[in-house]
Design a binder for these strands. Sequence first.
DNA 1: TAACTTGGTCTCAGATAGAGACTGAATGAC
DNA 2: GTCATTCAGTCTCTATCTGAGACCAAGTTA
Lengths: 132, 132
Amino acid sequence: MDACVALGAKFELWQTAGLNPDRCPVRGLLDQIGDRWSTLLLCALAVGPRRFSALHRLIPDISKRMLTQTLRTLEVDGLVHRDVQPTVPPSVTYSLTPLGRSFAGPLLGLVEWAETHFPAVLQTRAQTKRAA
Amino acid sequence: MDACVALGAKFELWQTAGLNPDRCPVRGLLDQIGDRWSTLLLCALAVGPRRFSALHRLIPDISKRMLTQTLRTLEVDGLVHRDVQPTVPPSVTYSLTPLGRSFAGPLLGLVEWAETHFPAVLQTRAQTKRAA
DNA sequence: TAACTTGGTCTCAGATAGAGACTGAATGAC
DNA sequence: GTCATTCAGTCTCTATCTGAGACCAAGTTA
């Protein structure tokens, strides 16, 4: 409730700035890392550094294309570090930067909410389906 | 760091369940509400109930199509309540459900992280652009 | 009488995501 | 010696998704 008020207040502030993606953090950041794969990848990297193919094995249903693309975005945003060893075959290791690790806190909050309320959501979804 | 470890542990647990979207909360929930508009809409509704056209005015660059669609998804997931007054012209008011309001906490955490670290991200982005 | 409001839906074009073949050099199995 | 596999991707083609904007019916306002 209190968080709700605070959130509302923030939204009204962004409003006055025209919701510009270059200035509004929600639009500028969450647009990017709030996609299907980014959060999952950040969770996977929270365990520790991983190589490209290891990540692909951990999350089998991401395509190589999206894995590359998502990791690149996270790298550009400074959340993930990409370390290339010029061996043959190449060895590329991804790890969280300090910034990326600092994101674990809020992300954990989100994940815990999701775990707590997922059953309720599933139930609501089922009810809607039944009504339809 | 500690949150990082906790997050990693959770990921490994989901792993053992095969990362099934029907069971893994991150996939089942964040896949949906982690899109471009959902979080923004939840923030807008955190202020208070709003009518369809009011939401459209608050977030001008969402298309009516996506506004409808996103609100429907949030409704199906039980985060948003849709109240239709059968007047002419119709009057439809959207508001957060208790479940939706309970999401404000974790979302606020995320937003605060975004606000704090957005400058750092912008800086990293700029550096990458310069290097390219 | 004409224009505007309500909360959408519809269609079409353009952007995006996914599936899967392909790369090139080294290593392992046979 | 030869074939298959591994590494970290890239490339192409198709399928899905998104956005822009026209359109709706009924009432209210100018």
